[in-house]
Amino acid sequence: MGSGDALTLTWLSGMILALAACSAPAPGNAPGHAPCEAAQAPGQPRDPEDPGAAWHSATSRGGSYQVSWRPARGVLPVNEPFELLVWVEAERAPGGPVEGAEIIVQGDMPDHGHGMLREPRSREEAPGLYRVRGMLLHMVGHWTLSIDVLVAGSAEGADFELDL
């Protein structure tokens, strides 16, 4: 990731991707499996280094933030360490990137009675853009990800679901 300049992430208004399914085209798709359409959709933060990257977005539980994330290297690996990029914008006026937060990511497998066996940590890389290190989803199946934004001692997060 480059300087703050290189990361002019824009947030276009309102709408969200239909079934936000795709990661960036994976380098090694089996023949016959077409890579995903590069999913640059309205409502997604734009990453000039990887304009095709798809972000998954949701409004936080209390309506304060728009939380978006994507795996830093495009694909979401099973049972390998990876990093997330998380982009947080204020929902309420005046809007804009949410700076100086700590991002707390928890993964759960509700059907299994356990969750992610790691405690990731975040670091802000550019205003509102955080890199979360220490992720590892060790099993295939249904996961819930909760991404909490901790600012000035109070946390508010957004929930996501994914099937590995």
């Binding site: 399914a21 960036a24 090694g28 077409a34 949701a58 936080s60 290297r73 694909v75 390998e80 996501f160």
Partner: peptide
């Protein structure tokens, strides 16, 4: 506000989510 993120297994998208 939940999104079902389907990391498709067989049918094409992005990844047999294995490490590249």
């Amino acid at each position: 506000n939940e999104w079902v993120v389907a990391v498709a297994l067989v049918a094409g998208c992005g990844a047999r989510a294995s490490a590249p």
